[in-house]
Amino acid sequence: MQFRAKLVSWAEIEKWCRNIGKQVINSGFIPEAIIGLSRGGLVPARMLSDRLWIKDLYAVKTEHWGFTATKDGKAVLKRQGDPNINGKRVLVLDDITDTGESMKLAFDYIKSLSPAEIRTSTMLHITRSSFKPDFYSEEINEEKWAWFIFPWNVYEDLDNLIGRSMVVPSSASDIENILKDDYNISFADVDLPMLLNDLVDSGRLKLEKGKYSK
């Protein structure tokens, strides 16, 4: 097995965002704006803005390339217009702090925009991360680490995993077994054949005589 991967459910996303919302409220910190890190923090940020009744919602884009980050192992900030947060209390949100590089990069950039106060949050915090957020729903130690496949990147991640592991054209059931063996993924609540056919429609996979190939 190369590494463990876990398909994250929407029920888990809702639970984690609810936990963060409660922590923020109980802390006494009252955000005036929320910034989601693009792409992983966009959906959680929208969910938190709804739970916390915050209308000012912005995005800051940080980039990693696939499973190995950028070519030199560093996160990259993509400027797309500065959020209007001067003098405001800001909550920054991402899906996970794994290496911590994306959050640290975003934090330093957001700080340069002169907010009154910044607090950071992630649904999941990996203990090895170099950056520890103020709020998080679950802490994951090294022994329980897995590559978390969130609903908003399920196609990208499965396409990458299939490309790594599928050697010959394979049926849907063969691919399910391959991914279980290599990454310990459970597809109990996921329609894998539907996902595979969507990958075919988007040109990421080929289908011939019931067999999928890259």
Rank of each mutant, 00 (worst) to 15 (best):
R79F: 12
R79P: 02
R79G: 01
Q80P: 00
Q80W: 13
Q80A: 14
Q80N: 13
G81I: 07
G81P: 03
G81T: 06
G81W: 13
G81C: 06
G81F: 11
D82P: 08
D82K: 15
D82V: 13
D82L: 14
D82E: 15
P83C: 02
P83M: 01
P83V: 00
P83E: 00
P83A: 01
N84E: 15
N84T: 09
I85F: 05
I85E: 08
N86M: 13
N86T: 14
N86D: 12
G87Y: 14
G87Q: 09
K88F: 07
K88S: 09
K88N: 08
K88H: 07
R89Y: 13
R89T: 13
R89S: 14
R89K: 15
V90E: 06
V90W: 10
V90Q: 07
V90K: 05
V90L: 10
L91I: 04
L91H: 01
L91M: 00
L91C: 02
V92N: 02
V92A: 07
L93R: 00
L93N: 02
L93D: 00
D94Y: 04
D94G: 04
D95H: 03
D95Y: 02
I96C: 10
I96G: 02
I96Y: 08
T97I: 02
T97A: 12
T97Q: 07
D98T: 07
D98H: 04
D98P: 01
D98E: 06
D98Q: 04
T99C: 05
T99L: 04
T99H: 02
G100Q: 12
G100S: 10
G100N: 12
G100M: 08
E101K: 14
E101Q: 15
E101C: 02
E101P: 01
E101A: 13
M103P: 00
M103R: 09
M103W: 07
M103T: 00
L105E: 02
L105F: 03
L105I: 10
L105R: 03
L105S: 04
A106P: 08
A106L: 09
A106N: 11
A106M: 12
A106H: 11
F107L: 14
D108V: 00
D108L: 10
D108I: 01
D108G: 06
Y109V: 08
Y109L: 03
I110Y: 05
K111L: 13
K111N: 11
K111W: 07
K111D: 10
K111Q: 13
S112Q: 11
S112N: 09
